[in-house]
Design a protein around this nucleic acid. Structure first.
Lengths: 335, 335
DNA sequence: CAACAATGCGTTATCGCACACGCGCTTTAT
DNA sequence: ATAAAGCGCGTGTGCGATAACGCATTGTTG
């Protein structure tokens, strides 16, 4: 590998000059610049990142804006795991992660966390922009590269998006539920929260496009009910022997599984999203047939790596990364 | 972060002494060593990897011993992709990969490639030990850390194994084929190569344990037939309307898919392994219903990262990594 | 033409660590 | 008694890049 010295020698200047020219800093003549660039090209010079990062001894601080880990049945702990794993590999190179959590159902909470990031000293941001306004305004305020995970926001100025294709997730659920319900009468039941959400409605659309029978929808999230009894009463009204299969578009399939278990209806096909701990249990018990996951761990892992490579290695952003849906069932449950 | 200077000051010695003690090199007294260790502990000193690797300016050369990429329907290109991806992230830190390919059906070819590695100058090895003898003897000859992918070999002296749980892969196939064949008469057909192979027989075992009907087995690999007509004639004898489903235990499901397509039997459930290009096409066409993959890309990716971290960062080997089976179907086909 | 500003570039210290060398002392060998 | 070897340790240099500093040379003024 050619070093800055080789370039300097070939261009007939000192290393200091090469450095200034390559960083477009200080003073230099255009013709020496030409010679230096020529030498760089000829030698195929690439700066040694070890030496550079050692010299500027910068630590790369990444701020992470995601909901509280325990929200959405513990879903947000998963991307965090992936980010921590990436961190453990990168910390020797001076990468630090700081988490700023918020209540995803509370705009003020998100604004407050975003404010703390804006005031913090960070070199990059990773966020799940569940609340448009706060995410957009944070990017406007804090001029550092940002990567979005989980949800995208067009025209927000992010450098990359690492996320999912929700539509195909729905289609996949349809395919599996079609299979599971063969030989059963009746129609499907879709369970969705009431709150407006791009991903969830895409999951519903993709599902509806591919199913081979009718589907009723119960668009009232678990959080809308006062207690378990209340919720079970609601399910009583929509679930019965004539239910061919149940499709839960968010991470709360385990609540339904609990209901099915109590009512002795464990043979009713049930599909949900996100491999949170409660869902995992219900998969192991065979009450949930399939869990679809968009690899949140992997999303977190990649986001950190991507941002690191942009900031520290000066690479171009490789553009968006769409994770494929993974199918989890009893036989391939991790751990 | 504390540096070696801080440790030296606290221990009342020079940095050179600290260095010698920490690397157990040269000469030093036990009591200074005590003081140094105490200082290290107290300050939480960890060497700066940037500086270390810069100073010794070592390049970490990894030798990779796997079959030719095009073998097994192109399967071996997949771990290579993962390794190349890991490489692109690590090359700024002086990691280099050198591939040594061999014919997996030819012991001499493998021995020759292993010989070239033994003679090469490398700091670590990654190998798919499909041929016991050659793998074992290479490890005996070349005393550098080795990681196995795809297949494990007990007592070989490898530092880690990154691979699959074949038994559960078979169980998963059974689960899916049970589902797909609902409403069909007849029995299952297992297609397997004749060659003795741990993974493949585990896949068969796991499958047999979970199926809900009988299964016949045709243990004659594709490679045993002279031409397509010969192969199709053999399939004619075992596949018919009474076939409830077909389970191909290796990457050659696409050959069967081609047959089914020609005979107009595309509704016969078909499951295979490994997302090689031909299988991908047949999944897209809906002839292959499910492909199970043990994430060979990911295996390669992890192997490189693991070895890098052991060699360059001096981390402990985190032990074996078993990848879960992934289910691929039309709706979640990557790309 | 002296005084001064602007320009282009080289020098040097620094980052944190590794490693060779050799100093000054004590112990052993001849 | 003198040389040789052993011991514990400090010093110095280099890895590749950064960035502040300052020296020449040239150009511009009154």
């Amino acid at each position: 590998m050619a070093t800055i010295k080789d370039v300097a020698k070939k261009a007939g200047v000192s290393t200091g000059t090469v450095d200034r020219i390559l960083h477009n800093r200080g003073r230099f003549s255009t013709e020496t610049a030409q010679r230096v660039y020529a030498a760089v090209k000829e030698l195929g010079y690439e700066p040694n990142m070890l030496a550079r990062n050692l010299s500027i001894s910068r630590t790369c601080r990444l701020a992470v804006l995601i909901p509280y880990p325990e929200q959405d049945s513990g879903y947000w702990a998963l991307p965090r795991e992936g980010m921590d794993e990436a961190l453990s590999a990168l910390s020797p190179y001076g990468v630090a992660l700081e988490y700023f959590h918020f209540d995803r159902y509370d705009s003020a909470s998100c604004g407050e966390a975003a404010g703390r990031i804006a005031r913090s000293d960070c070199d990059g941001m990773i966020m799940a922009p569940l609340r448009d306004g706060e995410a957009r305004s944070l990017i406007r305020k804090k001029h550092v590269p940002a990567i979005f995970i989980d949800t995208d926001l067009q025209g927000s100025g992010r450098i990359a998006y690492v996320g999912q294709d929700s539509r195909s997730g729905g289609a996949l659920a349809a395919r599996l539920l079609n299979l599971l319900s063969r030989g059963r009468e009746g129609s499907f039941l879709i369970l969705a929260p009431q709150t407006e959400n791009f991903h969830l409605s895409e999951r519903i659309k993709g599902f509806r496009e591919k199913i081979e029978r009718k589907a009723e929808i119960l668009a009232t999230g678990i959080e809308a009910f006062h207690d378990k009894a209340d919720f079970h009463a609601a399910l009583d009204r929509v679930i019965g022997p004539e239910t061919a299969g149940i499709y839960v578009v968010d991470a709360s399939a385990h609540y339904v599984a609990e209901y099915l278990k109590e009512k002795g209806l464990t043979t009713v096909p049930l599909i949900g999203f996100d491999l949170v701990e409660e869902n995992r249990k219900m998969v192991r018990d065979g009450v949930i047939d399939f869990i679809l996951t968009q690899q949140p761990r992997e999303q977190g892992f990649r986001a950190v790596n991507l941002l690191y490579r942009c900031l520290m290695l000066g690479e171009e952003s490789p553009g968006d990364q769409i994770m494929v849906s993974q199918i989890i069932t009893k036989e391939n449950l991790p751990d």
